[in-house]
Amino acid sequence: MTVRAVVVAPSNVLSTPARKVLDYDDSVLQKVRDLIDTMVESPGCVGLASVQLGLSDQIFVVDVSKHKKTDICHGLIVAINPVIIHQSDPHKVREGCLSVPDFTGSILRYGEISIKAFDVTGCEFTISTNAFEAQAIQHEIDHLNGKVFLDRVLDVADVYPRKRYL
């Protein structure tokens, strides 16, 4: 069980696109374990991207099964080298992030998405989902592309200071 510290923005590792995973070896498995352990141990955390642990690999984990806005749910998702292959139903949501503790922001997310990714053994899979699971996956893929939600804010009324975080 390894719970690692979550990197807080601004930070180079958060603003740099993560590298593709090429070898599906034990080190990838260890990073996935660290991501899951840290996600589970962080209160209210429903997803974590490798860059948030200071690792520059295209890996994220998501588990929204306990969240009230969840519709379609795949339980614990571990995705390596993920790519969005379909997105529809854009709408505004208000989002916060463990790596951006002092703000929340209203941004555009897609209500329905499909992604293609690889599991820890290097097998390709696709997931089609909606609602909160779709939002969480887009949030994590943004992280792997070097973006936090603040990078998507377009208007002055769309960013809110937070008083205290969890």
């Binding site: 955390c45 429903v46 997803g47 949501v93 929340t104």
Partner: peptide, 9 residues
């Protein structure tokens, strides 16, 4: 109107 509560991800 919209009422939106934030979600931390």
């Amino acid at each position: 109107l919209d009422v939106i509560a934030p979600d931390t991800i």
